[in-house]
Design a protein around this nucleic acid. Structure first.
Lengths: 198, 198
DNA sequence: TACTTTCTAGAATAGGATTCTAAATGCCAA
DNA sequence: TTGGCATTTAGAATCCTATTCTAGAAAGTA
């Protein structure tokens, strides 16, 4: 690996890490670019060189998080053996990623709206479409085989993910005593009752 | 009603309305206080007099929306005749309020995180505790009578509301073809399957 | 080594939130 | 009705911070 790239990547990574710490502590709008510089050792110019602007830093963090999570989810769901296994994979990989990266997850939930109003909105929407399509492909065969109820597609995500999503958000906000990991089975079961055919 | 108060209230109302329009169009951070002034006819001083700062305006809008929605929900749930009726009331009043006030609802979802990092966080959290408690009181008798499954309390909200909540968010973001009103029964049924005892 | 591209620094600029002072308005008591 | 007090409004001045800009350092290339 060439030295320049590696130094450059290090800087990028340091900036992202410092930014996540700052966003976590102060929130997106209250963290200043200066804080990010102090936390990362980078200069203002460097931050702008790599990310364009403050929202650019947030966007990179956001995108990268979604990708990382989705890749894990996809791998797991693909490996599942039956319909219920796919559902379980979706829910459990969500629980795992968010509990392993609570700050990152909290950040993503917090800024989703801001992202969708930023310049990057289009790009993010496109990437999201891809992921939705991939999900559709994961479910389709099981729907055809009658193991999952036939429903308007846009209902699957809410019915399957809605409860965990809501619970995880509450947990990340500190409004919940027990961690999501303790209710895996409850959420899988609820999802299965909602969309499974049995 | 004294004239002064009424003029003052009018101004408050005008500012809030203009602010919601601006927030809807540009997002919280991109709307300037000047936009709010132009949209409402109020001066900078007036806005600051009534709301303290820009986030203060957003906070008022946020609080007022939650209250309005909760009052409707509570009235409806109280009037319900059985356990399933309570569940249905929770879900349907949520659907109704959000579809009747889409901009307001979209705003509330978008800024929840910002609110929780503002000065008003404590106050908002306290108000929320009240509402959660009221919900608990609504469900408790039916749990005791065995019509609703006994579960850790913090699971009810996700299991009951999670799916609609997720769907409504998607709909408000334009990611959904059909309105939530068309799936009332689906969501009530899913909630009932998740927590009902039958 | 000379030349090009990428990256970093940090000072200068610009935009907008917030503060501040003065004035207008409304209320109340005499 | 008037004078005094509290509330509300105006808008200019201030301050903070995102962003831009220019110069120079570092790395890559031939």
């Amino acid at each position: 690996m060439p030295k320049r790239q590696s130094r450059s990547n290090d800087r990028r990574r340091d900036i992202l890490q410092a930014a996540l710490r700052a966003f976590t502590e102060h929130g997106l709008s209250a963290t200043t670019v200066e804080m990010i510089c102090e936390g990362s050792g980078a200069s203002v110019g460097s931050v702008y060189h790599h990310f364009g602007n403050k929202i650019g830093v947030a966007t990179a963090l956001y995108q990268q998080g979604l990708e990382e999570h989705f890749d894990a989810l996809h791998a797991r769901a693909t490996a599942a053996e039956d319909a219920r296994g796919v559902i379980a994979a979706l829910i459990e990989s969500f629980i795992d990623w968010t509990t392993e990266n609570p700050d990152w997850a909290r950040f993503i939930f917090a800024v989703r709206a801001d992202m969708m109003q930023s310049e990057a909105a289009e790009k993010l929407t496109a990437a999201n479409k891809e992921r939705v399509k991939a999900l559709r492909d994961l479910l389709a065969p099981h729907v055809e085989q009658g193991h999952i109820r036939q429903l308007p597609f846009e209902l699957y995500q809410p019915l399957i993910h809605g409860p965990v999503l809501t619970y995880v958000r509450a947990w990340l906000a500190g409004r919940t005593a027990s961690a999501p990991t303790e209710h895996r089975e409850t959420f899988v079961q609820a999802a299965w009752r909602a969309v499974g055919n049995e």
